[in-house]
Design a protein around this nucleic acid. Structure first.
Lengths: 341, 341
DNA sequence: GGACCCGGTGAGAGCGCTCTCCCGGCGCAG
DNA sequence: CTGCGCCGGGAGAGCGCTCTCACCGGGTCC
């Protein structure tokens, strides 16, 4: 048992500084409207007593919590182990920290969890929510909308097609895919294949759309389904080589997929990029630099996406500037040319 | 701006049910000592009004928060993207949820963050902390100890050698390593190598110790340093084959490392397990089942470690059973035999 | 039949903070 | 020199809850 010394209260600080509670409160919250000598006295008292405001008492009256929920729907374990998500979370964490907000993590799997999360958010324990719901059919986003908590989604929710006023942050998956495929075409490649991600995720679907924007319906056999993993990339690449031996370029839905594809190409004796050019997506480091050959890929600033989500939630969604908050923010991507294409 | 309807208070529920606040409070907190018909009436009122207790008000008087901080020191990005950590976090999340506790995630990098975390924990905003500090020289654990918050560590902290009363949960890394190496020896292998993890992490150091327990000091060239990644495993395996071509078994510090090693062995034309037997650590699925050949490995129940950490914190550290809380809990490991050894 | 006890309920204080009001003092204009 | 405005600071209410304590009614026991 840790013997917890009773923490000093405002009252105690006030007594020590020889002022009233109100003044201490003012100083602690920025010190506006308090004359300098007093500010100094109070600051010293705070310091000496090691005073830390009681967040519960504060929340009780302000109705703010300086806390944000991050909700992660996790149908598969994979989602969370994904470095992609880890990076976004890091961005979120940094931004929240910079604004003195706490991050409450809500992991869900299954229906009961959804209800639980809905109740929690509706319960007004946090000032807002950042939601990662990666699948098209997920009921969670709906629940959350209804909870009436300011919310920003990570990635375009499946049911939002630009019309609804849902706020989200996403990469320009479609545009990035177009740029990648155009680059392959510009290289003179005519048999450009695409290994997709799981198509129930909008990012994967959008990248496929981008591919189709450039390639039209081309040869449907050139599109093979993957799952964003290296293993899936290997499987897809094998299938691709079997049914279209004349393939001369591959646009993989992400870098992990591309790394699997590269492995199979090497195994089958195809030279990259001479025989088959390969482009990935993400620019996930160090992976993309360490493949053999180093991977040409579409970069998206993942950490920045996280930061932006947090910033939107904290700043843009308050009652301050009604209507000013954008529905969806789409971050640009850039093609990073390395050796594989 | 979301028009937030004023949330119903205890008072409102009491009025609707025709009882006093105190009675509603009792019902909400378990309903002990309230007669059935009243309980029913109150329950209905709660339901109808959609009442959710105000956690801030509650904390203010109970001095409990039903929240636990999870502190992750993140010198490298890798730490967080690690599926190992993700699994532990999942276990923690489940256990906390089961006890109606929230998970406050604190990601740190760098000194200022440490101070911030120290202040936060000392500030009494959470009931306890679960700390992942993976490196020997990390100052964070010390700071946290001083904050006077009940704490459970994930993995044996470097500076704890069983003597101090620090509470942690760990796998039997040393014992598991011993079992793996003994198994290789039992297979008749005499040139058993070890690819280590980053030795500033206790788990890696302990596995090396386990290897040495069985092999003695053997041939020092048989120990090569890795870093828990497939890339590191590849590098180490190449080095190993170069300096000890007669190696006939490899104990890799984890499955990722083993997968890299397998790749190099295949590339160099060594058959597994005929020429070189390979054992990993973790039994990370699906990886361990999908390698070629499927990996023999030391299983540890990672999610259970997380659960246990949370359970210890919530149950065992309270003022309830002083002295009953164990200093360190070491979970057993089991050897899972597949094809690679 | 009256004193006692005990389970169930209500009344009220108070957790630590913010915020509105109010008051006293000072500067400036008349 | 008096009056007014303004600003810095204090007093006090009250946020929504828990928890102690007093109260009340109906047994039980002598």
């Amino acid at each position: 048992m840790t013997e917890t010394a009773p923490r000093p209260t405002l009252e105690a600080v006030a007594a020590r500084a020889g002022v009233s509670r109100a003044t201490v409160s003012r100083v602690v919250n920025g010190g506006d409207g308090v004359r300098e000598p007093l500010v100094e006295r109070v600051r010293r008292a705070v310091e000496e007593l090691g005073y830390v405001p009681n967040q519960a008492a504060r929340s009780l009256v302000t109705r703010r919590h300086d806390a944000v929920a991050v909700v992660v729907a996790e149908p598969e374990t994979r989602v969370f182990a994904d470095p992609f998500f880890a990076l976004q979370l890091r961005g979120i964490s940094k931004e929240l920290t910079a604004h003195d907000n706490q991050l409450v993590l809500l992991l869900t799997e299954g229906r009961d969890d959804h209800a639980r999360v809905g109740r929690y958010l509706a319960g007004g324990h946090v000032d807002g929510a950042l939601v990662f719901s990666l699948h098209l059919d997920d009921p969670l986003p709906g629940l959350i909308q209804r909870a009436g908590v300011p919310t920003v989604f990570g990635g375009r929710p499946g049911w939002s097609d630009g019309t609804t006023d849902v706020v989200y942050v996403d990469s320009d998956n479609r545009g990035g895919a177009r740029e990648a495929v155009r680059h392959l075409a510009a290289l003179g490649r005519t048999r450009v294949a695409h290994i997709t991600g799981p198509l129930d995720q909008t990012s994967a679907a959008d990248r496929l759309d981008g591919y189709r924007d450039v390639m039209g319906e081309a040869d449907p056999r050139l599109v093979v389904r993957g799952d964003f993993t290296p293993g899936g990339g290997e499987l897809a690449m094998r299938e691709l080589l079997d049914r279209c031996p004349d393939v001369d370029a591959v646009f993989a839905a992400n870098d992990l997929t591309a790394s699997g594809a590269l492995r199979v190409l090497r195994e089958r004796g195809r030279r990259v990029p001479e025989d088959v050019a390969v482009i990935g997506f993400d620019d996930m480091l160090p992976l993309a630099e360490q493949t053999d050959p180093p991977l040409t890929t579409v970069r998206q600033d993942i950490e920045e996406m996280g930061r932006l989500m947090a910033r939107l939630l904290l700043g843009g969604l308050g009652p301050g500037d009604a209507g000013a908050a954008p529905a969806g923010v789409v971050l640009p991507t850039t093609l990073v040319r390395r050796a594989s294409a």
